[in-house]
Design a protein around this nucleic acid. Structure first.
Length: 928
DNA sequence: ACCCTCACG
DNA sequence: GACGTACGTGAGGGTA
C-alpha cells in the first residue's frame, strides 16, 4: 500500500441534504426513511470506490452529538435561530447509526464537539502522517480544510472539490475562507458577521487587505460608506464570528486513525438492514439470492424512489375462505404469532358483541399475514348467555396475554380497517396497538372525493380487489331476528372475520404503494395516521351530560310546542301536522292564500326559513309561529331527547364517533350523536350547551381558532391588506368594510362579513345578492371591488379552478388531495357547483389539517408539562374542548394555545399568525 | 330510501 | 340570459 487515503464522512450534514432532496419515502413499518435511503445509497457509492485509485483505504462516519458545544459557551445565540429538524426526519437520526453499523463502518461522535471539529482534528492528524484525506461533505465551513492532499467529495453532485472550487465560489483560497465566512455571517447557524456584507464584499475586503484583522484595522481609513460604518461598528461581532467559524482541530482523537482501516463490506448485517427497510434495488445489487429478494418484495411492498420498479411478484391468489383457520389451541395461536413476527406486518380485526366500543365485549380477533393466510381466534362466543352452549375456545386472558407483546412490538406493523375501533376495544384490555396503519385512512388520503372509491371495506374490496365480502348482515341477520356476533357459529364467524383481515391486508399492500407513489405520504404520516389513536382516546373519554338539565329543558320545550300548536291550528282554522311540509304548504298557500311559488320538480311548496320569514314580513302571524314551533321541535327531538338516550350506561357519559373519512375536505365528522352541531347561535338553543358539564372539581375549557379560514385564505391567496390586518390584530370584517365601503359601521361591517364568507365558499353574484338582499348587478360590483382591493383573491380562484380541471384535484398546504370528478361535467350547474367546492376545499382542508396536527401533538405536549389530567374531549372543526382540574387551567391554557398556534409548523410556514381564544367554566356553555 | 329542514363550523 | 345555489357536515320527521 503506497498511500493511505482517509475518507471522513460528514453524516449529519448529509442527512439534512438527503432529506430535502429525496421524496418522503416510508418503509413497510410505516417509518419515514427517505433520508436513510439517501444516506444508504451514499455509503454504497463510497463502498464502490474501494480499491480504486482515489478510493478509501480508511473510512469513518462522523456525526453530531448533543446540541451544546463550546461555541454555545462563546456565543449563546449560536445556532439559536435554527428551526427544529422536520418531525419526519427526527426518527431517522438513530436509523443513520443503524445504517452505518450495517456497513460495518466506524462511527465517531463526541459530546461538546461538532462533527466539523472532529473532521478537522482527524484531517490534521492524517495529514501529519502523510495520508491523503477526502472529506465527504458539501459544507462550506469544512472547505477551510482543503489543502494539498485534502479534498472534498460531494456525492450528490458527484463532484470532487479542491482549492480551485473554493476560489471560484468564494473568491479566496481555502486558508482565507475563515475570514470571508466571518464577515459574511451565516443566518442558519446564526453567526452574526457584519451587516450588509455578503460573499462578494467579504472576498474583496480579504483580498485587498490580506486578512480579517487587517481589514478591521484599516476600516477607519477606508472611504466613507455604509459598509465602512458597519465594519467599524460591528468589528467585535466580526471577531466573534471569526472564532465561531474556526474549526477546532486539536481535540483528542476518540479512536486511532489505524482503526478506520477498510478491507471490505461484510454482506451479513447489511443484507438484514436492507431487508428490514425493504431497500429492494440495493438488495438486488448486493447479490442477495433472487428468492430472498422476492420474499422481501412480497412482504414489504416497498416503495422506492427511483424508478418505481414493476412488481415482480405473481398476482395474488383469489380469496379462498376455505383456507382460513379457527384458532382454538395454544399451539396454533403460537404459530400465528410467530408468523406475524416473521412477516413484520399483520392485519388485525376485532369482533365484538355490539357496536358501542365503550361497553362492548370482545368476542374474537382475526389476523392475516398473507393472501388467504388468515385466522380467527374466538374468545367470547356464547359468552354472555349462560344457557347457550359455549363452543370450545381459548380463554380470553390467555389469548390477550400472548397477543400483547405482538400488538405492541415496534418491529411488527399492525394494519386495520377503521382501527380506532380496535384500538379502543383492546386498550380496555390493557393493550396499546403500535405501530399501526389504517386502510380506511389511507384510502381517504388517496381518493377523497373520487365518486367510485368508497373507503369502507366492503366497497373498497369491490372497487380495488373486485371481491364481494360476506356482509355483517349475512352472518348476524337483521331486524328482530338479528343475533350478536357472539352467537354466530365458529365456522361462519371465521369465514367472516378472517376474510376481513385478509381483505384488509390485501388493500394495505395496494394502498401502501400508492401512498408513496401518489404523494400522499406527508398527509398520511404527518396528519392523519397519528390522529387515529388520538381520536380513539377522545371517543372513549366521552363527555358528561347532565341528564336532569336536559330533561327539564325537554319538558319546557314540550309545553312551548303544545302552546304553539294550539295557536297555529287556530290560525289555520283546522288541525294539521305542522311538521309536514306538504300539509303546511297546503294550509299556507291553498287554504290561506298567501303568495308563494311551487318549487322545482318535486312540485312541492317551499316552506323553508326564507319563505316563512318572507310571509312573516307580509304580516302572516302563522309563519312566525311555525318558525318558533320548528325551532323548539328541532331542539327537543334532535337534542334534549336524543341526547339523553345517548348517555352510556356504563360511563354515564356521551361518546360520539368521529369519522376520519367523513368530509371530502379532510374535516372530521361526528355521529351517534353528532356533537359538532350542538346549538349555540340562539339563546334558547345555547341552553343545551350548558348541559355538557365537567365532573366535580373539573372545568370545561374551550379553545377556538379565531377566523382560521379567513387567515388561511389571506395566506394562500397572498392578500397583503388582509395579512396586515391579521398581523395587527384588527377586526377583520371591519377592516374589510373599510377597504370596500370607506367607512365602518354596523351595516358595512355586516355586509363585509357576508362577503368575506362568500369568498371562502366560492362566490356567485346571485348568491351574494340573495344574502345581502340587493340586486345581482350591485352584488357583481361589490365582488369586483373586492377583487380590486384584494388582488390575489381572484388569481387564487382562477388558479384553483384551473388546477382542479387539469389535474382533477385540489391540494391543501399539507398536500391533502380532494378530487373533483364533476369539475368537467357538461351540465353547467353541476360544473359550477364543483368549482365552488374546489375553491373552498384547500382552505377548509388546510384548516382541518392544522387542527388535526394540534390534536396529535396535544397529548405529548400536555404530558411534558405534567398535565396528564387534562383530557381532550371534543373537536368541532376549529375548536377543541377539554375537561381538566380547575387548578390546571392556567398551565393548560398556555400549552393548548401554544400547540394550536404553532400547529402548522414546521411543515408549513404561514405568513399570518393563528389566533386562539380560550374560555372555561362549569359547562361547555359557560366556556364560551 | 328519499326529501325537507335545520343544527353546527 | 337564467339557475330562488353560497362550502362542509348529520339527524329527525314526514312521505312514498
Amino acid at each position: 500500500m503506497s498511500q493511505n487515503h482517509l475518507y471522513l464522512v460528514d453524516g449529519s450534514g448529509y442527512i439534512f441534504r438527503a432529506y430535502h432532496q429525496l421524496p418522503p419515502l416510508t418503509n413497510k413499518h410505516g417509518q419515514p426513511v427517505g433520508a436513510v435511503y439517501g444516506y444508504t445509497t451514499m455509503l454504497w457509492k463510497l463502498a464502490e470506490e474501494l480499491g480504486k485509485a482515489e478510493g478509501p483505504t480508511h473510512l469513518a462516519v462522523v456525526l453530531d452529538k448533543g446540541s451544546h458545544t463550546f461555541r454555545n459557551d462563546m456565543y449563546d445565540q449560536y445556532k439559536a435561530n435554527r428551526p427544529p429538524p422536520p418531525e419526519d426526519l427526527v426518527p431517522q437520526f438513530p436509523m443513520i447509526r443503524d445504517a452505518t453499523r450495517a456497513f460495518s463502518l466506524p462511527c465517531i461522535e463526541e459530546e461538546g464537539f461538532e462533527a466539523d471539529d472532529i473532521i478537522a482534528s482527524y484531517t490534521k492528524a492524517a495529514v501529519a502522517q502523510g495520508w491523503h484525506v477526502t472529506i465527504v461533505s458539501s459544507d462550506k465551513d469544512l472547505m477551510q480544510l482543503i489543502q494539498p492532499g485534502v479534498d472534498m467529495y460531494d456525492t450528490m453532485k458527484n463532484e470532487r472539490r479542491g482549492p480551485d472550487y473554493v476560489v471560484g465560489k468564494f473568491g479566496v483560497t481555502p486558508d482565507k475562507l475563515g475570514d470571508v465566512l466571518a464577515l459574511m455571517g451565516d443566518s442558519v447557524d446564526n453567526v452574526p458577521g457584519v451587516p450588509g456584507i455578503g460573499p462578494k464584499t467579504a472576498a474583496k475586503l480579504i483580498t485587498d487587505y490580506g486578512s480579517l484583522e487587517a481589514a478591521l484595522e484599516a476600516a477607519p481609513s477606508m472611504k466613507k460608506s455604509k459598509m465602512q460604518e458597519n465594519l467599524i461598528a460591528h468589528a467585535d461581532m466580526a471577531r466573534l464570528s471569526r472564532r465561531l467559524v474556526t474549526l477546532h482541530d486539536a481535540m483528542d482523537l476518540p479512536e486511532p486513525l489505524e482503526d478506520f482501516s477498510l478491507k471490505g463490506i461484510p454482506t451479513e448485517p447489511l443484507q438484514a438492514f436492507l431487508e428490514h427497510h425493504g431497500f429492494r434495488s440495493l438488495l438486488t445489487r448486493l447479490g442477495a439470492p433472487a428468492a430472498a429478494v422476492a420474499v422481501a418484495t412480497a412482504a414489504a411492498a416497498m416503495t422506492e424512489a427511483t424508478p418505481p420498479p414493476k412488481p415482480q411478484v405473481a398476482p395474488e391468489p383469489p380469496i379462498d375462505r376455505s383456507l382460513y383457520e379457527t384458532v382454538v389451541t395454544e399451539d396454533a395461536l403460537d404459530r400465528w404469532i410467530a408468523a406475524a413476527h416473521a412477516e413484520g406486518v399483520v392485519a388485525v380485526d376485532t369482533e365484538t358483541d355490539m357496536l358501542d366500543c365503550v361497553s362492548c365485549a370482545l368476542v374474537g380477533i382475526s389476523f392475516a399475514v398473507g393472501p388467504n393466510a388468515a385466522c380467527y381466534i374466538p374468545v367470547g362466543h356464547g359468552g354472555r348467555d349462560m344457557f347457550a352452549e359455549r363452543p370450545a375456545q381459548l380463554p380470553k386472558e390467555l389469548v390477550l396475554a400472548k397477543l400483547k407483546p405482538l400488538l405492541e412490538d415496534d418491529s411488527v406493523l399492525k394494519v386495520g380497517q377503521n382501527l380506532k375501533y380496535d384500538l379502543t376495544v383492546l386498550r380496555r384490555h390493557g393493550i396499546d396497538i403500535a405501530p399501526y396503519d389504517d386502510t380506511i385512512v389511507m384510502s381517504f388520503d388517496l381518493d377523497a372525493g373520487q365518486s367510485l372509491a368508497g373507503h369502507g371495506m366492503d366497497e373498497a374490496a369491490k372497487v380495488h380487489l373486485d371481491h364481494v365480502c360476506i356482509s355483517f348482515k349475512d352472518v348476524t341477520g337483521t331486524g328482530k331476528s338479528q343475533i350478536s356476533f357472539a352467537e354466530v357459529p365458529l365456522d361462519k364467524a371465521t369465514e367472516y372475520a378472517a376474510e376481513d383481515a385478509d381483505v384488509t391486508l390485501r388493500l394495505w399492500k395496494l394502498f401502501k404503494n400508492r401512498v408513496a407513489n401518489e404523494g400522499a405520504t406527508r398527509i398520511y404520516e404527518l396528519v392523519d395516521r397519528p390522529l387515529v389513536s388520538v381520536i380513539a382516546r377522545m371517543e372513549h373519554e366521552g363527555i358528561k351530560v347532565d341528564r336532569e338539565a336536559l330533561s327539564r329543558l325537554s319538558a319546557e320545550f314540550t309545553a312551548g310546542i303544545a302552546a304553539l300548536e294550539t295557536e297555529i291550528h287556530a290560525l289555520a282554522g283546522q288541525p294539521f301536522a305542522i311538521g309536514s311540509t306538504q300539509q303546511l304548504g297546503a294550509i299556507l298557500f291553498d287554504k290561506l292564500g298567501y303568495k308563494g311559488g311551487r318549487k322545482g320538480k318535486s312540485g312541492a311548496y317551499s316552506t323553508d326559513v326564507n319563505m316563512l320569514e318572507q310571509l312573516k314580513a307580509q304580516g302572516a302571524e302563522i309563519a312566525g309561529k311555525v318558525l318558533d314551533w320548528r325551532q323548539l321541535s328541532k331542539l327537543k327531538s334532535t337534542y334534549t331527547d336524543a341526547l339523553q338516550a345517548q348517555i352510556n350506561k356504563d360511563s354515564g357519559r356521551v361518546h360520539t364517533s368521529y369519522s376520519l373519512s367523513g368530509a371530502q375536505t379532510g374535516r372530521l365528522s361526528s355521529t351517534d350523536p353528532n356533537l359538532q352541531n350542538i346549538p349555540i347561535r340562539t339563546e334558547v338553543g345555547r341552553q343545551i350547551r350548558h348541559a355538557f358539564v365537567a365532573e366535580p372539581g373539573n372545568v370545561i375549557l374551550a379553545a377556538d381558532y379565531s377566523q382560521i379560514e379567513l387567515r388561511l385564505a389571506a395566506h394562500m391567496a397572498d392578500v397583503p391588506a388582509l395579512k396586515e390586518a391579521f398581523a395587527n390584530g384588527e377586526d377583520i370584517h371591519a377592516a374589510t368594510a373599510q377597504q370596500l365601503f370607506g367607512e365602518v359601521n354596523r351595516d358595512t361591517r355586516g355586509r363585509a362579513k357576508t362577503i368575506n364568507f362568500a369568498i371562502l365558499y366560492g362566490i356567485s353574484r346571485w348568491g351574494l345578492a340573495a344574502r345581502l338582499e340587493i340586486g345581482a348587478d350591485e352584488a357583481q360590483d361589490m365582488i369586483s371591488r373586492y377583487y380590486e382591493r384584494f388582488p390575489g383573491i381572484s388569481l387564487y380562484i382562477t388558479e384553483t379552478i384551473e388546477k382542479a380541471r387539469s389535474r382533477g384535484y385540489t391540494e391543501t398546504l399539507f398536500g391533502r388531495k380532494t378530487w373533483f370528478p364533476r369539475i368537467k361535467a357538461p351540465v353547467q350547474h353541476e360544473r359550477q357547483g364543483a368549482e365552488r367546492a374546489a375553491i373552498n376545499a384547500p382552505i377548509q382542508g388546510t384548516s382541518a389539517d392544522i387542527i388535526k396536527r394540534a390534536m396529535a401533538r396535544m397529548g405529548p405536549a400536555l404530558e411534558r408539562e405534567g398535565l396528564e389530567n387534562v383530557k381532550m374531549l371534543l373537536q368541532v372543526h376549529d375548536e377543541l374542548v377539554f375537561e381538566l382540574p380547575e387548578a390546571d387551567v392556567d398551565a393548560a391554557s398556555t400549552v393548548i394555545r401554544h400547540v394550536m398556534e404553532s400547529a402548522a409548523e414546521p411543515l408549513v410556514k404561514l405568513s399570518v399568525p393563528l389566533g386562539v381564544e380560550i374560555g372555561f367554566g362549569a359547562s361547555w356553555g359557560a366556556a364560551h
